[in-house]
């Protein structure tokens, strides 16, 4: 069983509703999230699935209606002041006063947390903004704004970085840059929690993922676990596809048409497929293993959520037992955590 100090972020039965013109809207519904210490954790879900609200609750910007949250074992938002030095976060778009230069904004933040002024130059250099540090934030491109926000999070030298949709509005070069930065930060031993609705990006960089839909956790685990055997298949190209389908189905394989080809699902043995078809004089001209991407899983799960289907995919890891008291040594979720 996983212990709490393996997690940078833990939420239990988190719930948040908003009052709207159409009544109460559930943004987050009984969300129990586990973000392991170290590595990149993708927090995935379509727009409006509760990702940003969850992040805001973790950072104390939004009050949950119910549930509990811990960051590195500290119960938040009550104990945020104790743990905030280990957390750097960008929520949605970077937000600074547009007339202030990047350097001035960072200097004020550094002074507020007692970080040395030299750190400002270090993070500006680390995010390739040193040359433009004295320009007004309002004059920055989207990519530069995003880099400045990352620079701000690095002022604290955090153990946990939370990036909410960090690539929104960026060009391909900017997206690549952010992805590389996240990977580098994780490789330095930090935990990166990145929310996104763009799966292809996260799949390339994430070690673990949690998928949410309509505020609920639908699947969580390593990328490989979440994809799992789901829809692993072999694409078969053969001249008489109809007859070949009959042959393979008769042999107990799950077959469905895929254009002019066939898709044999369930991670079948390619050699067996060739042998079965060869026995019937059906000669294979294409045999391609097809593995579902995170995006396929995401779409399948989130569409299921939209239809009200029960959660599927890898079950969430067991939740740490709730503590008797916030600082109780018996509380498995109060452990230190990161580096």
């Amino acid at each position: 069983m996983a212990t709490a100090d393996e997690y940078a972020v833990v939420t239990n039965d988190l719930r948040k509703t908003y009052r709207t013109a159409r009544g109460r809207q559930v943004a987050v519904d009984s969300l129990s999230l586990r973000v392991p210490v170290g590595g990149v954790h993708g927090f995935l879900g379509p727009n409006g699935s509760g990702k940003t609200t969850t992040i805001r609750m973790l950072l104390g910007l939004v009050r949950p209606d119910a549930g509990r949250m811990r960051i590195f074992g500290h119960r938040v938002p009550d104990a945020l002041p104790e743990v905030v030095g280990r957390v750097g976060a960008i929520v949605e778009s970077p937000k600074f006063l547009p007339t202030f230069s990047g350097r001035r904004s960072l200097t004020l933040l550094a002074d507020a947390i007692g970080a040395p002024r030299a750190r400002v130059d270090e993070v500006l250099t680390a995010t390739a903004l040193r040359e433009r540090g004295d320009d007004a934030f309002g004059a920055y491109s989207l990519g530069m704004k995003q880099r400045l926000a990352i620079a701000a999070t690095l002022l604290k030298e955090p153990d946990l970085l939370i990036f909410d949709e960090p690539t929104n509005g960026l060009d391909p070069a900017g997206i690549h840059e952010i992805r590389t930065t996240m990977r580098r930060l994780a490789d330095e031993g930090r935990t990166v929690l990145v929310s996104s609705h763009i799966l292809a990006e996260v799949e390339q960089v994430a070690d673990t993922v949690s998928i949410v839909g309509r505020g609920r956790l639908l699947a969580t685990g390593t990328v490989a676990d979440v994809i799992g055997d789901r829809r692993a298949a072999v694409r078969v190209g053969v001249r008489d596809a109809g007859r070949a389908a009959q042959v393979l189905a008769a042999a107990g394989l799950t077959v469905r048409p895929d254009g002019e080809r066939l898709l044999v699902e369930g991670e079948p043995d390619a050699g067996r497929i060739t042998w079965l078809l060869g026995q019937q004089g059906l000669w294979v001209h294409e045999l391609t293993p097809v593995r579902a991407g995170l995006e396929d899983v995401f779409l399948e799960l989130t569409q299921g959520a939209a239809l009200g289907a029960p959660p599927t995919g890898s079950p969430p890891p067991p939740a740490p037992a709730p503590p008797a008291a916030p600082s109780s040594a018996a509380d498995p979720s109060t452990g230190g955590g990161a580096r």
Binding site: L59, G60, L61, P77, L80, P81, V84, V87, G88, A89, V91, S93, P94, K95, F96, L97, P98, S105, L109, A112, I113, A149, A152, K156
Partner: peptide, 18 residues
Amino acid sequence: AAEMTTGSMSTWLTFVPQ
């Protein structure tokens, strides 16, 4: 008000959550 409008208050509170 400018801090509330631009959202820089939220950024500030992620550094000083009091």
